[in-house]
Amino acid sequence: MDNSVIEQVVEAVLAELSRSEGVTVPEAPEIHEPEERDITSEAERAAVLVKNPVDAEAIARMKKYTNARVGVGRAGTRYNTQTLITLRADHAAARDAVFMDIDRELLDGIGLFAVESRCTTKDEFLTRPDLGRQLSDESVSVILEKCVKKPDIQIFAADGLSSTAIKANLPDLLPSLLDGLKNRSGISVGTPFFVKNGRVGLMDQVSELLEARVTCVLIGERPGLATAESMSAYIAYEARVGMEESRRTVISNIHRLGVPAVEAGAYLAGLLCSILKAKASGVGFRRDTGNEG
């Protein structure tokens, strides 16, 4: 049967219905929205999905030690539906973390101005790591104009591979770090800022540009399927373009379920001062040498 014929019939019936008075069109049955369930929540992740387990409690305990998808059961040789969907949700969060941009408002809220690397798009950022390690010409002049020169400690943030990590941690970490440095007298702290599409190596140029003694970049880590919110701090004493990677000290795993942002900030304050005092970073710096704790 032709579609137009069906349409004609439907129209005719509807017209007939609306004409006949006294006939009430039955109300559409109320549709119950299924209860909203966040399968990426901590409680759902902690659930033991193995059917008929010998010892469910033991599996639940084991799950506490890892983010890996263990104790989730299986369908034949594959994941169950819930596990598969969670995996996809985690993957989507990871992609979002890479491709999302940081809100201007968030940066304003913590008093950071924004500059850019030489990458103009996320695609370029992902395909040209070399450009992600350099500031754009305009950014160079903005930084020179706005920042205090020759600071003992220069801190800046960069989105890196996870804007989500910056959004989740920076607003709590940065003030904790700056307050920690304020508590230690006689140390000058540079003007903090934010670099869009920036990579770790960009800190070398920042260090040279501002003649900082210690430079620290707070940067989003490559998101995994366990968390997209993890942030790292890379620190170097007198960083120079072209220096060995081994001169960088790194503190990773800063996130809600790892090291809490406020605690990481307070720890970094001490670490930055130790590096300043030791005049060394990376493998040349032993964490315990002159660490003020």
């Binding site: 406020v262 605690e263 900030g265």
Partner: peptide, 14 residues
Amino acid sequence: ENDTAKALGQAIEM
């Protein structure tokens, strides 16, 4: 109990 003592101690010192 939770790992926030360094940040809290620092804030209390202030």
